[in-house]
Simulated assay, not measured.
Amino acid sequence: MKKRVLSLVLTTVVGASSIANTAEKETKEVKAEESQVTWKAYKFGGSHTGTVTLKSGALEFDGEKLIGGEFVVDMSSINTTDLEGDYKNKLDGHLNSEDFFATEANPTSTLVFTKVKSTGKNSYEVTGDLTIKGITKPVTFDVSVYGNKATATLKVDRTKYDIKYSSGIIGTAKDKLIYDEFDLVVDLQM
């Protein structure tokens, strides 16, 4: 009788724990059309802002805890939002060119989370592999998750991805200097 009760208890505990482990993990697809990726780039005496379109993405959770994520951005969707007309078209064209993102040869960029560390309720420090122009480098940034929404802000050093146009110019040409780092602000809807 004791052996039968012990067997029943062990079966129940093992069964319950395996159900709990599989039921907790969940991948939430991001609604790309409702999400937004905004960029801001800086130059001597000013800045420019714009958007790129999220092609696909997902966040992985264990219960309510963020544990992973993966995203694809359509680089040919680069859109300057602080200019209009010819100035906008010229900058969009230049950002798509070989001087910057070479979007014809590199139509997408990706971000794959490699490490997620909880830093508080709904807050995480994420390290991920960011691939731009076929070059992959690690980036670390903060993510906040609230229900079916997530936000992140990344600072990216463009020179690590072989984007060196007007980088580090000194002397009389300093007014043409484009700063090496640009910001990405990401608002995700799941």
Rank of each mutant, 00 (worst) to 15 (best):
K3I: 09
R4H: 09
R4Y: 10
S7F: 10
S7R: 09
L8N: 01
L8Y: 07
T11K: 01
T11I: 12
T11W: 06
T12L: 15
V13A: 03
V14E: 01
G15A: 12
S18V: 15
S18R: 00
I19S: 06
A20S: 11
A20L: 14
A23K: 12
K28C: 00
E29L: 12
V30L: 10
A32L: 02
E33D: 15
Q36S: 13
V37K: 00
T38A: 09
K40N: 14
K40M: 11
F44Q: 11
G46P: 08
S47H: 14
T49K: 08
G50S: 08
V52K: 00
T53I: 09
T53H: 02
L54A: 04
L54Y: 03
L54D: 02
S56L: 00
G57N: 12
D62A: 09
K65H: 10
L66D: 01
L66Q: 05
L66W: 03
I67R: 01
E70L: 00
F71P: 06
V73K: 00
V73I: 11
D74R: 03
M75R: 04
S76C: 00
I78C: 00
I78Y: 00
I78S: 02
T80F: 01
T80R: 04
T80S: 13
L83Q: 09
L83W: 01
E84M: 08
G85Y: 07
G85F: 08
D86L: 07
Y87G: 00
K90E: 10
D92W: 00
G93A: 04
N96I: 01
N96E: 12
D99A: 13
D99H: 10
F100W: 05
A102G: 10
A102F: 03
T103R: 03
T103H: 03
A105Q: 12
N106T: 07
P107V: 05
S109A: 15
T110E: 10
L111N: 04
F113P: 00
F113D: 02
T114C: 05
K117P: 06
S118M: 04
S118H: 02
T119Q: 10
T119F: 01
N122C: 05
S123W: 01
E125K: 14
V126C: 10
T127K: 10
G128S: 08
D129E: 08
L130I: 04
L130P: 07
T131Y: 05
I132H: 02
K133P: 02
K137S: 13
P138I: 07
D142G: 13
V143A: 06
V145T: 07
Y146E: 14
G147P: 10
N148V: 08
K149Q: 15
A150T: 04
T151D: 11
A152D: 09
A152L: 04
L154W: 04
V156G: 01
V156C: 08
D157R: 06
R158H: 11
K160D: 12
D162T: 11
Y165M: 09
Y165G: 02
S166P: 00
S166L: 13
I169T: 11
I169K: 15
I170E: 15
G171E: 12
A173Y: 15
A173F: 14
L177W: 08
L177M: 14
L177C: 10
L177E: 13
I178K: 12
D180F: 05
F182S: 11
D183Y: 12
L184I: 15
L188E: 06
L188P: 07
M190I: 15
M190P: 13
